[in-house]
Design a protein around this nucleic acid. Structure first.
Length: 578
RNA sequence: UGGGGUGUAGCCAAGUCGGUAAGGCAACGGGUUUUGGUCCCGUCAUUCGAGGGUUCGAGUCCUUCCACCCCAGCCA
């Protein structure tokens, strides 16, 4: 179960230099440590509700919680906040565990479920009733809403608010015993219906819900609410710093009320940070689930999804996601991170680790006129130009090759350094070739390029010092392996698709070309046995990952993780704009 | 017209007891280069939401205002 090479209870440490500025949470904990609080040990937890797949926003929280524990000599629990059986499924708990592990974090033996605490939570609720701090309300949901008041007007007490302790105890026991239907009663905290904080207006603590729970089955028909379960679960686990997102700021008062009213000490404290937003995508479970259910994507792990499983299938590395989370920082201001930073993080990692290979996405036939018909050469090319230790592979060369369509222009624009009639370019690591002629089809489209090669330039060097401006990748027609290549782009074409200010729905902004499938790409033969999940750089084209579901030996399928930075595309765009 | 938060460059984000605006991404120049990749070097906030005030000195203190986010689930 434990991810490899990770110190007990900790997360991996990336090679990044420690951030210079500390975020507000670390600053607070620094002070706690100086004051000798918590015996110098920080206890955190990552508490997902198993009602969907984890996304990169969760990765931020995971990195924070596990990271804090590691930095301050503590530990981080994985706790499923499974208090609402109607939304939760084991499929989700399994995927969450897989994703946390894959990210490189280890909760060791500290796997918990709020549902483990149902009995204790029930007892705490009974205690509140005995103390006169909770009561069973028999108003309907609608009546309760009406009694709550508004943001500017105080609420009204429920007529059931002053039931006797005995009556409350009996009612609550009967709720648990299944004597009522959903909605007949609800256990509420007796706080203040006039509180300026609406959350404090006698919040519900337990509700009746006749539903099968993925862990407790039908053992219960009443379930605790988040605000009651979360703080107590934290306390039960000895959590010191309970870190959540900003939308729970208002709930902190209730978090404290429950623990203080029950006299729990020592007790955890809640801190809130801003959730992650990224441009050109959506990061809310509600929206992601819609994309899946409406079949707008192929599933939770569609490589365009911002889910951990989607990013994994896309070819992102755990380290790249961790680095991303470190780079974005932790603060309280609502913010939207540029998707370019995420891309930068994968490229940064893959540039170091991905073996280089050649793959032609949109093939254009090239015939080397002066190369013998029956000749073949087996070149030995390094997997990484700067890392000899990564080894090499054999790449065959022959008379008929394929190059990238966009690497040839019959009428080349300025600054185009690639192949064109009369031009000499280098075929990477192989030979200099000069274009002598083209063959066109009936529509005038160039379907074949005729070249001559210079036998004196073997390896891609010329002894006479002659320079060539372009270097192209290529594959040998006879030896190339056909592959399916899936080119992924951003899922949405609008920077903030979730914004409803213009009256549109986020689904209106899906980018139609977010997936372009190429079925006739040709890759070098060394890729025949690419392992599903294996990552490569297709030289000059980008980073690609053999698809974990569809790739097969002999007929690989590659997902484009990210393109390489492309300054020619930029130059061309600039020229077109002029 | 209630309460809780937040506002530092195009995007994130540091900024200790007030001492004269870190870093990253993006962008833009230039160098190296058998990937128009990588790498390297350089440019990019006289100003910190706005206005007043205190001070020799304010992003940091006081004050007024403005903008944005969250809260009226028996969701989390």
């Amino acid at each position: 179960m434990s991810a490899s090479n990770i110190p007990a209870g900790k997360g991996p440490t990336d090679n990044e230099a420690p951030a210079k500025g500390r975020d507000f949470i670390r600053t607070i904990i620094d002070r706690h440590m100086e004051e000798g609080k918590y015996d110098g040990k920080v206890m955190t937890r990552f508490p997902p509700e198993p009602n969907g797949y984890l996304h990169i926003g969760h990765a931020k929280s995971i990195c924070l919680n596990f990271g804090l524990a590691a930095e301050f000599g503590g530990a981080c629990n994985l706790r499923f906040d499974d208090t609402n059986p109607s939304k939760e499924e084991v499929e989700y708990v399994d995927s969450i565990m897989e994703d946390v592990k894959w990210l490189g974090f280890d909760w060791e033996d500290r796997l918990y479920y709020a549902s483990n605490y149902f009995e204790r939570l029930y007892e705490y609720a009974v205690q509140l009733i005995i103390d006169g701090k909770a009561y069973v309300d028999s108003l309907s949901a609608e009546e309760i809403r009406e009694h709550r008041g508004t943001l500017t007007e105080p609420g009204k007490n429920s007529p059931y608010r002053d039931r006797s302790v005995e009556e409350n105890l009996e009612l609550f026991a009967d709720m648990r015993a299944g004597k009522y239907r959903d909605g007949d009663h609800v256990l509420r905290a007796k706080i203040d219906m006039a509180s300026a904080n609406v959350i404090m207006r006698d919040p519900a603590l337990f509700r009746i819900k006749h539903a099968v729970h993925h862990r407790t089955g039908d053992a219960w028909c009443i379930y605790p609410m988040y605000d009651f379960a979360h703080c107590l679960s934290d306390a039960i686990e000895g959590v010191t710093h309970s870190i959540c997102t900003l939308e729970f700021e208002n709930n902190r008062e209730l978090y404290d009320w429950v623990l203080d009213t029950l006299g729990i000490s020592p007790r955890p404290h809640q801190y809130e940070f801003a959730r992650l937003n990224i441009t050109y995508t959506v990061l809310s479970k509600r929206k992601l689930i819609q994309l899946v259910e409406d079949k707008l994507v192929s599933g939770w792990d569609d490589p365009r999804m911002p889910t951990i499983s989607g990013l994994r299938r896309r070819g992102y590395t755990p380290a790249s996601i961790r680095n991303f989370c470190e780079k974005i920082g932790v603060a309280k201001a609502d913010s939207t991170v540029d998707h370019a930073l995420l891309e930068f993080c994968v490229r940064e990692d893959l540039n170091e680790s991905a073996p280089r290979v050649m793959g032609v996405l949109n093939p254009l036939k090239v015939v080397i006129e002066n190369y013998p018909e029956d000749r073949e050469e087996d070149f030995d090319f390094p997997y990484h130009p700067e890392k000899e230790e990564m080894g090499s592979r054999k790449v065959p060369f022959s008379k008929i090759l394929y190059i990238e369509q966009e690497d040839f222009r019959e009428d080349p624009p300025k600054k185009f350094f690639r192949l064109a009639p009369g031009r000499e370019v280098r075929l990477r690591y192989a030979y200099y070739v000069t274009c002598t002629d083209v063959v066109k089809d009936e529509n005038g489209t160039v379907v074949e390029v005729r070249c001559t090669y210079d036998p004196e330039t073997k390896g891609g060097w010329s002894k006479d010092g002659r320079k060539v401006k372009g270097t192209l990748h290529w594959v040998s027609a006879k030896h190339a392996l056909k592959a399916e290549v899936r080119l992924y782009e951003k899922l949405f074409q609008k920077e903030n698709p979730a914004s409803t200010k213009d009256g549109t729905d986020f689904k209106d902004h899906l980018y139609p070309e977010s997936l372009v499938t190429l079925t006739d790409a040709l890759v070098e033969p060394s890729l025949t046995n690419a392992e599903p999940g294996q990552r490569f750089q297709f030289e000059r084209m980008g980073y690609f990952c053999a698809d974990s579901k569809d790739s097969r030996p002999g007929s690989p399928v590659f997902n484009r993780t990210a393109t390489l930075r492309d300054s020619w595309a930029r130059i061309e765009k600039q020229m077109n704009n002029k």
